[in-house]
Design a protein around this nucleic acid. Sequence first.
DNA 1: GCGACAG
DNA 2: ATCTTGTCGC
Length: 230
Amino acid sequence: MPHIDARADEDDLWPTDAEGAERVQQRLAERVRVETLPAAQVSLVAGVDVSYAADDSALVAAVTVLDTASLRLVEAQVEVARPRFPYVPGLLAFREVPPLLKALERLECEPDVYLCDGFGLAHPRRFGLACHLGVLLERPTLGVAKSAFVGRATDPGAERGAATDLVDDGEVIGRVLRTRTGVKPVYVSTGHRVDLAGACDLVLRLCPRYRLPEPIRHADQLSRARLAER
DNA sequence: GCGACAG
DNA sequence: ATCTTGTCGC
C-alpha cells in the first residue's frame, strides 16, 4: 500500500492542461534522488503497465509482483478506468500514473523496486513516468522503454548484456541495453532512488528469456487480458 | 517553419 | 497504445 508524499498533496498534482502538467514536472523533478540500490535488498520486484481500448474508452492499469530469485508471481492487482488525460509525448505520466496508483493501493505486499514501461530521467525535463511514480511513492523505480525518445546513443554489441550510454546535452541519461542476443535493445533509465548501473544489472537479471523484464511482461499480459474480458 | 515524438 | 495469424529462423 503506497503512501503518497504529504508534500505532494499540497497543490494540484493533476492539472488538465499541458502547461500546468509541465510545471508540475519541473517542480517534482527536484525531488528525484539517484542512489545505489543494494541487490541484496531486492527480493520483491514489481512491474507496471497500462493497456488501452482501441477507441480509448477504457484502460486497465496492472501491477504484478515477482519474487526476484525465483521469478514466481507473488501478487497482482488491476484498476479499470477511463483515460483522463490524452497521450502527449513527454506527459505520459499524467495519463498513466493516476490509474496505476489505484492498482498499487490494492497491493498487500511491499515491492522493493518498481519497473515501469517507459522512461525515467531520459526525458525532456528529466522527469519521465518512472521518476513521477517514484517521487509520489517515495520508493525505488526505474524505466524500461522499448523505443527511443530523447538522447543519442551508438548501437550496443549484438551480445546479451552489451550496452551503450544514452546521452543528451552532454549528460548520460540512460543506457541502451541488449537483454537478448540479436534482439532489439531496450532503453533503461533511472526513476528514483536507484542508480543506472544497478538498474541495468537488475533489468538483465529479470530478462533470462525474453527481451522485456519478467515483471513488466506479466503486467502487460494481465492488463491486456483484463481489457479483453470487457 | 517542419517533422519527430515513451505508451 | 491498438488494428492482427501465421510463419520464417535459430
